[in-house]
Design a protein around this nucleic acid. Structure first.
Lengths: 127, 127
DNA sequence: ATCGGTGCAAATCCTTTGCATTTCC
DNA sequence: GGAAATGCAAAGGATTTGCACCGAT
């Protein structure tokens, strides 16, 4: 049995970071989270943002989206991400995908689906 | 119409890197590719490996697997990757998944599916 | 009062890049 | 011969970390 004996504190930093991510529909990078949260907590440091994002991710409250640098998504409902190869924007795709619950390798705790291509706007402006 | 007027050369470095990736069933990191290729080309530099892997990926001959540092997979047939959250190993999952051809955002050129969980071996040894 | 979290800055690590030289066509 | 790729080393950039101090319980 796994027991976590280290007690964890709820700091205002952590709460504000999580609130921010739950409030937006975008997929901000660590830097963007930092800049946004700084408005409410001017003294927060970038290191603290990194630490808290890692923490929140490990607790399953947010998910990391890999696209060059780390981006974060406060929406944990099952959905895929479309990443535009031209403008690098990340779009949520809620069209249903069927993903197995388990595999030969082990039980799936969570999953991520990435689609790559050009978004409509960029497709138009391809030279 | 997009024309690529820059002519590209097939160097022994590029060929050996691609051959290596096509020959293994693992998902080596850049560093691991470097070390493997170094056995055949002792003077190859890490920078060249980075350049060629990026290149081969852009040409669609290999795919990048994101897991901390970049890993590469020479198998382009559709399959998912199971990443063990304990040992970080990457496993191929060929069980079929249905992925749309297009979305509201744009046409899907390629996709990636990641499953996370504990592999069987790690599940046993969880303290 | 305790000890986990923070702010700050330095360190680390992965990846990219500039440039002289080599290699392919 | 000329452009593209390489090797080397330095630069860049994202993320992590050590430590003294702060603040939540």
């Amino acid at each position: 049995m796994i027991t976590n004996n280290k007690q964890e504190r709820v700091t205002s930093q952590k709460k504000i970071i999580l609130d921010f991510l739950k409030s937006v529909k975008t997929h901000p990078s660590t830097e963007e989270v930092y800049l946004a949260v700084k408005k409410k907590l001017p003294r927060i440091s970038l290191g603290t943002v990194y630490r808290n994002l890692k923490d929140l991710k490990e607790k399953g409250e947010i998910q990391e989206v890999f696209s060059g640098v780390s981006h974060y998504d406060g929406d944990m409902s099952p959905h895929a991400h479309f990443i535009c190869e031209k403008c690098d924007k990340i779009f949520d795709i809620f069209e249903k995908i069927d993903v197995p619950k388990k595999t030969k390798v082990g039980k799936i705790k969570n999953y991520q689906v990435y689609y790559y291509g050009f978004c409509k706007k960029c497709k138009k402006t391809l030279s």
